[in-house]
Design a protein around this nucleic acid. Structure first.
Length: 440
RNA sequence: GGAGAGGUGGCAGAGCCCGGUUGAAUGCACCUGACUCGAAAUCAGGCAUAGUCGAAAGGCUAUCGGGGGUUCGAAUCCCUCCCUCUCCGCCA
């Protein structure tokens, strides 16, 4: 959420930034300036009346204590009351509209973010690794997984539905190995503290990270059938998390952190649940796009001056995982139109998938600046200074399912086996290769 | 799931029965100053957040878990939701 006063004072800038994202400023801002002026005028009226009422009640109080008659004054307040009720309603309505407008306005992208409508305008910042060459046609992971007997999409469809996966044997172990490996590297080498949060959160948490109210359709909600109201939600509804970003960022919701503690770097493994509404027909093959996938997430809380630097570091921490696994990747700076709602600047890491001959997103690292902190009310305070909003950042470190399939495709051998990357061997109990698995 | 107790400022903890100089006693922590070579101790002062008006100084308003109600007036009375604790039951 943007700051009300900031929007008031920088209307033209906000409009320009919305256009940069491909949004329609008129539709998003609506009557903002008029409602804002109206609200402040009404607050002034209301508070003048309240002040008058408070003075009169003080006098009533004084009279009563000395045993005198106060009925004339009490009558006077009666007249104020009705007017006050109307004003209170008017102010509340104006505040609701303003909050409604502000909660749907995306973050302002930074100057260095390239202008553009969609992913075709994203800018490649760097490339790492050598694209492997094969003396046989490399296969996509869904073929490899099936042949090896470690990936079972048919039975997943039977027990759960489309866009779910069952991992067997070494496939299940590889997923588990990746989770441990990533968490270990982030905690031991990159200075993160591991957290294991709940996989369900309440509505306020989703508002804090910017998923609600706008993106409720992308989420799974657990709610008793009686309470189900389409398009509406209640504070104490439970939702399956779409990413660990939500519970972890909200750990410090409504808290004021001591500046000396910053930056705080947390890493968390969680499953992630996404309804994938609106993605029908996209990525139907394999396990690129699932309703449930595993992810190791990186989250930082910093003071405003440090968030740029920490964004670079966090992105490097995610890249380090790919490098340790020897997976070729490139780093993209997302353009204005492709940058997420809450983000001011986002790097995507894309891993090379030889089975499909393309780069595919495996991590997304964003600086949200104070956008989430304002929504979630996360502040910091130095010894001398006043409390101010922190900057929040996060990135995948990495999407485990996509790392799993990237290993299958990049490390596949002519004989149909898959070589286990050196760094994972200890996590696979010394096993160096994944071979076809006997009968299911 | 049943029964009970409770949620007050950074923390601890009064006030609630009996509504009115209580934005909130007191203690601790913290900041500034005095004393000291320095520190401790002691003394003096300061110490919430947000909104709004104002060029500023400063004023006003709101906030005692959230929301609503009663009242001239609510931390205090009523309703409701959330959360915490204790006991019982159930359970990985």
């Amino acid at each position: 959420m943007l700051d009300l006063g900031f929007v008031r004072g920088n209307l033209e800038l906000v409009e320009k930034k919305l256009r940069d994202r491909g949004a329609d400023p008129a539709a998003l801002l609506g009557d903002f300036p008029r409602i804002d002026r109206w609200r402040r005028a009404k607050i002034t009226e209301q508070e003048t009346l309240l002040a008058r009422r408070n003075r009169i009640t003080d006098e009533v109080s004084a009279l009563k204590r000395t045993g005198k008659d106060a009925s004339a004054l009490i009558g006077e307040v009666g007249a104020i009351k009705l007017e006050l009720e109307n004003l209170q309603r008017t102010v509340a309505e104006a505040e609701d509209s303003l909050r409604g407008i502000l909660s749907l306005i995306p973050n302002l992208t930074r100057e260095e973010v390239p202008a553009g409508r969609d992913e075709s305008a994203n800018v490649e910042v760097k490339r790492w690794g050598t694209i492997p060459s094969f003396d046989f046609p490399p296969r996509p992971h869904w073929e490899l997984g099936e042949k090896l007997g470690i990936l079972d999409l048919e039975r997943a469809a039977k027990i759960s539905g489309a866009r779910f996966a069952v991992y067997w044997g070494d496939g299940a172990r590889l997923e588990r190995a990746l989770i441990s490996f990533m968490l270990d590297q982030h905690t031991r080498e990159h200075g993160y503290t591991e957290v294991l949060p709940p996989f369900m959160v309440n509505s306020k948490s989703l508002f804090g990270t910017g998923n609600l109210p706008k993106f409720g359709e992308d989420l799974f909600r657990c709610v008793d059938p009686e309470g189900f109201e389409p398009g509406q939600y209640r504070d104490n509804d439970h939702w399956l998390i779409p990413t660990a970003e939500v519970p972890v960022t909200n750990l410090y919701r409504d808290e004021t952190l001591d500046e000396a503690r910053l930056p705080i770097s947390l890493t968390a493994y969680t499953p992630c649940f996404r309804s994938e509404a609106g993605s029908y027909g996209k990525d139907v093959r394999g396990i690129i796009r699932q309703h449930q996938f595993q992810k190791v997430e990186l989250v930082k809380f910093t003071c405003p001056e440090d968030s740029d630097l920490e964004h670079e570091k966090l992105t490097r921490d995610a890249e380090a995982i790919l490098e340790t696994l020897q997976l070729p990747y490139r780093r993209m700076l997302l353009c204005t139109g492709d940058t997420g709602f809450s983000s001011a600047k986002t790097y995507d890491l894309e891993v090379w998938l030889p089975g499909q001959s393309l780069y595919r997103e495996i991590s997304s690292c964003s600086n949200f600046e104070a956008f989430q902190a304002r929504r979630a009310n996360i502040r910091y305070k130095s010894k001398a200074g006043k409390p101010a909003f922190v900057h929040t950042l996060n990135g995948s470190g990495l999407a485990v399912g996509r790392t799993w399939l990237a290993i299958l495709e990049n490390c596949q051998q002519a004989d149909g086996t898959v070589r286990v990357p050196e760094a994972l061997v200890p996590y696979m109990g010394g096993q160096r290769s994944i071979a076809p698995r006997a009968g299911v």
